[in-house]
């Protein structure tokens, strides 16, 4: 008797699959890592390796082995590493990564069930726990092999801060009224988190991922567009508070978040309308927090806030059924 297989239709499938999408995003982080090493030295590699490895270990400890295959834990860890300041002690990075995967993702039920972007949740945790260390910036291009002073500090030791050694473009604008040269922000030779400085490379990676259909283009486009629009209006009205659109787009974690954070499918809306809303909301919050908040940077909180309202956005942007009333 011949053996037939019974499976449900359809029998053909789009070749894109979830682990592949994760691999695409992880792959696009490689050039960013290289760039980051050129700007900040070998610490970039160390930090990302520590957060990535911690994430994988945590995932293995708290969930079944099988979920490792989708690569999502590794991705969370890597993303966290790239949004941390280069001078942060490595143990803090590891702690944040464990938090991101353990409480930000696994506690919600694993991939697909978390409400908040786990990498940003990890960063928010570190920001709350170690506010000084998280806002101490290292100047770029100190030398490839030179590790920032406290990188290898033992956990809970050496918490003294030597004072700000460098200012990020946004910090400079907020606290000292300084403007940073646009070309520096584009090339990436400014202070900032490990992966966020090289705007040109982030744009390239974003375009590549969009072409690969690794994410939905509506999310980054609406985010960047609303940042540009609102900062253009605000810069014309209150120039001392709000930087010009180009600075807004090129500085801080915005471009990194536009490519890697607001594009996280899990924590953003599923509906087309909802995606536009999410992007616009994030963009508006970024500009408002940067201009009128106490902190120079607001991307992280903007995204996390929008994550929180995503279930609500989904509910109110349900598609209209074909042939239904408008």
């Amino acid at each position: 008797m011949s053996k037939l297989l019974l499976v449900s239709s359809p029998f053909v499938r789009d070749e894109r699959n979830t682990p592949q999408l994760m691999r695409d995003v992880i792959g696009s982080l490689v050039p960013i890592l290289i760039m980051s090493m050129w700007v900040f030295g070998v610490i970039a590699l160390l930090m990302v390796a520590v957060t990535g490895a911690t994430a994988v270990v945590t995932e293995r400890l708290v969930t079944s082995k099988r979920s490792l295959h989708d690569g999502s834990a590794l991705l969370t860890g890597l993303l966290l590493g790239f949004v941390l300041p280069p001078g942060l002690p490595l143990w803090m990075g590891a702690l944040g990564s464990a938090f991101a995967v353990g409480l930000g993702k696994a506690a919600f039920g694993g991939l697909g069930a978390n409400i908040f972007n786990p990498a940003l949740l990890g960063r928010a945790f570190l920001q709350a726990a170690f506010p000084e260390a998280m806002t101490t910036w290292v100047a770029p291009q100190m030398g490839f092999w030179q590790l920032p002073e406290r990188s290898l500090a033992w956990p809970l030791m050496g918490s003294h801060v030597d004072g700000i050694s460098a200012a990020t473009p946004l910090g400079g604008f907020k606290f000292q009224g300084l403007t940073t040269d646009l070309s520096e922000m584009v090339v990436g030779t400014t202070a900032g988190s490990l992966g966020e400085t090289a705007t040109w490379l982030l744009v390239l990676c974003g375009l590549w991922l969009a072409l690969r259909k690794a994410f939905d283009w509506r999310l980054p486009v609406s985010t960047l567009f609303s940042v540009a629009l609102l900062s253009w209006v605000l810069h014309a009205t209150v120039p001392e508070r709000c930087a010009d659109p180009m600075t807004m787009l090129g500085s801080g974690g915005l471009m990194f978040a536009a490519v890697f954070m607001v594009t996280d499918p899990v924590t953003t809306p599923v509906t087309a309308k909802g995606m536009w809303l999410f992007g616009f909301g994030t963009g508006v919050l970024v500009v408002l927090i940067r201009s009128f908040g106490g902190l120079p940077e607001g991307v992280m909180y903007a995204v996390l806030l929008m994550n929180a309202v995503t279930p609500w956005i989904n509910r109110f942007t349900q598609p209209r059924v074909f042939g239904g009333l408008a």
Partner: peptide
């Protein structure tokens, strides 16, 4: 037939594909 199933990542591709505009 590749039948390995992964968790829903809420990417919304199915909403964009549905000709009846369902979810």
């Amino acid at each position: 037939q590749a039948t390995k199933e992964y968790p829903c990542i809420r990417c919304g591709r199915c909403l964009d594909a549905c000709p009846m505009f369902l979810n």
